[in-house]
Simulated scan of single mutants.
Amino acid sequence: MRFHTRKLVKPGDLNANGTLFGGAVLAWIDEEAALYSIIQLENKKVVTKYMSEINFMSSAHRGDIIEIGVAVVKFGKSSLTLKCEVRNKMTLETIVTVDNIIMVNLGDDGKPKNHGKTKIEYVKDRIAKEEKNS
């Protein structure tokens, strides 16, 4: 799993117990899944269809640095299924896991559109390929 994003837990991210609010971390997970999918599918029109059970394993506190990792579970015809882990950057203790997040690729009409992708692609490899073909 690759961890792309780091967040600082700030006072506005806390719940009444003084720990990281679940809604805040879920918003961060959804954003990370969307960004990852947009890059993989090369389409800005991607939406979240499904998020499986969310397993809160530990808490985070004000001042903690967390990191969000995503990995591809599988490529569908118009979808991309991801898994996610949120962990404390300093201790590497897992805070949250989500086993399945299904992101759907959309066409201009707002309906699911085949993306034609079958494997993970890295931007650096796409750039190298384009330069080679130029």
Rank of each mutant, 00 (worst) to 15 (best):
Ser134Tyr: 06
Tyr50Asn: 05
Lys7Ala: 04
Ala16Thr: 02
Ala24Tyr: 10
Leu80Phe: 03
Lys129Thr: 06
Glu85Ser: 14
Leu35Ser: 09
Ser134Arg: 15
Ile29Gly: 08
Asp13Glu: 06
Asn55Gln: 11
Gly110Asn: 05
Ile68Ser: 07
Asn15His: 04
Phe75Leu: 04
Leu82Lys: 10
Ala27Gly: 12
Pro112Ile: 00
Ile54Phe: 10
Gly116Arg: 09
Val47Pro: 05
Leu14Arg: 00
Ser59Tyr: 08
Thr48Trp: 01
Val25Ala: 08
Lys119Thr: 03
Trp28Ser: 13
Glu131Gln: 10
Val72Arg: 07
Asn88Ile: 08
Ile66Val: 13
Asp109Gln: 04
Leu80Ile: 02
Ser52Asp: 15
Met90Gly: 01
Lys132Met: 14
Ile66His: 07
Val104Cys: 01
Gly22Met: 07
Asp125His: 13
Tyr36Asp: 02
Leu106Asp: 03
Asn88Pro: 08
Ser58Glu: 02
Val123Asp: 08
Asp13Ala: 02
Pro11Asn: 14
Trp28Gly: 10
Asn43Gly: 06
Cys84Ser: 12
Glu131Asp: 12
Met103Phe: 04
Leu26Gln: 12
Ala27Pro: 01
Leu26Gly: 12
Asp30His: 02
Tyr122Ser: 05
Val46Leu: 06
Ser78Tyr: 02
Asn88Ala: 04
Ile38Lys: 02
Lys10Asn: 05
